[in-house]
């Protein structure tokens, strides 16, 4: 039972680590990295869903009987792109924040804004 869902356990731990970084760390770049981990864990989750025991990559061929499920792969391809788009935009904002505030630490930004 435990082993059956081993992949999913990993996913949960990865998600928690990612989320923890986002919330607990004040550095904005670190937050983006956390966001990446969080998103990737979801990718791992979807791809694990798509795996069929004994199956092979969904590229049709006469010699293969069982394929893994292609649909999660498609969805995750899209999601990866969405993820990188978010990362790029987030980092661009980080750069602008650094230029405007001189800092990329959350608590310092808070202090500057409250002045």
């Amino acid at each position: 039972m435990i082993l059956d869902l081993f992949n999913y356990w990993i996913v949960v731990i990865l998600m928690m680590v990612g989320l923890f970084i986002i919330v607990a760390r004040g550095n904005l770049v670190k937050k983006i990295i956390g966001l990446n981990i969080f998103q990737t864990s979801v990718f791992v989750f979807y791809i694990s869903v798509g795996k069929v025991q004994g199956g092979s990559a969904p590229i049709l061929s006469d010699s293969i009987e069982v394929y893994s499920n292609p649909l999660p792969h498609v969805l995750i391809l899209t999601a990866i792109v969405v993820g990188v788009a978010t990362t790029a935009l987030g980092l661009a904002l980080v750069i602008r924040i650094k230029e405007a505030y001189g800092s990329v630490e959350e608590d310092e930004l808070q202090v500057i804004d409250n002045q």
């Binding site: 990559a57 893994s68 995750i76 990866i80 792109v81």
Partner: peptide
């Protein structure tokens, strides 16, 4: 996990 396209992209 057989997701070669995804692996390539990732």
């Amino acid at each position: 996990m057989d997701a070669v396209d995804v692996a390539f992209t990732e």
